[in-house]
Design a protein around this nucleic acid. Structure first.
Length: 268
DNA sequence: AGCTGTACCTGCAGGC
DNA sequence: TGCCTGCAGGTACAGC
C-alpha cells in the first residue's frame, strides 16, 4: 500500500503537473474527508509539493497549504482532459488549464486538511514523525532507536513515530533481505544485524522508488499509472511459495495484527 | 511510558 | 447462487 516509495512517486508526478496552476474550483463529492474551507483555496496558485513520511503537502501562493494523507486506498490523479468522477472519487480540484486533480479513496480513510503553510510542520501527524530512511536517518540514530525497542522489530519498523515511511510491504522485505526474523524483539538485535537491516531498508526502498512503487492492490501514480515493484516482492504475499534463496516454503503469521511473511529457514 | 488490540471503511476471496 | 466471515493495512486511540 502507499508507503514511502509510492507517496514519493505521487509527489514527483504532482510536482511535474500541478505546480504553476491555479485552483479554480473544488468539488466536494464526499465532504467527510476534507477539513477546512474549500473557498479559501480557490483562486490560489500551486507553488510546490512536499512529502513528510507518507504524507503530502500541496503549497499554495496565498499562505495556505493542503496536507493530504492517502492512507491505504487513496489516490491523487491528474487528468489533463475532462474526466467523469469514478465510483470512489471523493473530491475534484478544477485547475485553470481545464485539467482536474481527482482524489479517489475506496475506504475513506484518507484526509485532506487546509491549514496555514507556517503551521504544516505543527500538524500532529507531521510533528510526531521520526527520521526518514534515505534522508535524515543515520545508522547511529537507527541503532539507538532499535536498541530502545522492546517490541517485535517489524512493529518498530512500521511505527511512524520512530521511523517514517516504512509500511507492511517494505518491513517484510527488508527483514527478509537482512535475514532477521520479524518477531525478534528489537533490542535483541546485534550491531551487525542492525547495520544489515539499515542497508536492507535502503535497498528495498531505493529499488521500489526506481520501479515507481508497488501496485499490488490499488496504488496508482499521479497520472493513474501502476508501479512495477510488486514484481520484485521478496516475501510479501509469498506465503506457500518457495523462498528464492533456499527453497523453503514462505510462512505467514500475524504480528501487531498485520500479515507478516518470512522464510523460517533464512530468517532467524 | 510503552506496548497491544481494535476501530475506522469498503471490496473481495473463500467456505459452505 | 448467495450469504457469511475474515482479511487487506495506515493511523488514532483506549486500555493494560
Amino acid at each position: 500500500m502507499p508507503e514511502l516509495p509510492e507517496v514519493e512517486t505521487i509527489r514527483l508526478g504532482l510536482q511535474k503537473h500541478l505546480v504553476g496552476h491555479t485552483i479554480v474550483d473544488v468539488e466536494l463529492i464526499w465532504p467527510g474527508q476534507f477539513h477546512g474551507d474549500p473557498k479559501s483555496i480557490i483562486g490560489s496558485k500551486i507553488i510546490g509539493i512536499r512529502r513528510f513520511g507518507k504524507g503530502l503537502v500541496i503549497d499554495l501562493d496565498n499562505g495556505l497549504s493542503l496536507a493530504v494523507h492517502v492512507k491505504m486506498t487513496g489516490q491523487l490523479i491528474y487528468k489533463a482532459s475532462p474526466f467523469l468522477a469514478g465510483t470512489h472519487t471523493r473530491l475534484i480540484f478544477h485547475l485553470d488549464n481545464e485539467a482536474l486533480l481527482l482524489f479517489n479513496d475506496i475506504r475513506k480513510f484518507g484526509w485532506l486538511k487546509v491549514l496555514k503553510t507556517s503551521e504544516v510542520t505543527g500538524l500532529s501527524f507531521f510533528k510526531s514523525l521520526g527520521p526518514e530512511p534515505l534522508k535524515n536517518l543515520t545508522l547511529e540514530n537507527f541503532t539507538q532507536i532499535v536498541k530502545k525497542g522492546s517490541l517485535p522489530i517489524k512493529s518498530l519498523l512500521m511505527d511512524q513515530k520512530r521511523i517514517a515511511g516504512i509500511g507492511n510491504i517494505y518491513a517484510n522485505d527488508a527483514l527478509f533481505l537482512a535475514k532477521i526474523a520479524p518477531a525478534r524483539i528489537a533490542s535483541s538485535l546485534s550491531n551487525q544485524e542492525i547495520k544489515k537491516l539499515f542497508k536492507s531498508i535502503e535497498e528495498v526502498l531505493t529499488k521500489s522508488l526506481k520501479a515507481g512503487g508497488a501496485s499490488e492492490v490499488n496504488f496508482l501514480n499521479a497520472l493513474g499509472e501502476k508501479g512495477t515493484y510488486q514484481k520484485h516482492f521478496l516475501v510479501y504475499k509469498k506465503n506457500g511459495k518457495p523462498c528464492t534463496n533456499c527453497g523453503t516454503i514462505i510462512k505467514k503469521m500475524r504480528i501487531g495484527g498485520r500479515g507478516t511473511f518470512y522464510c523460517p529457514s533464512c530468517q532467524s
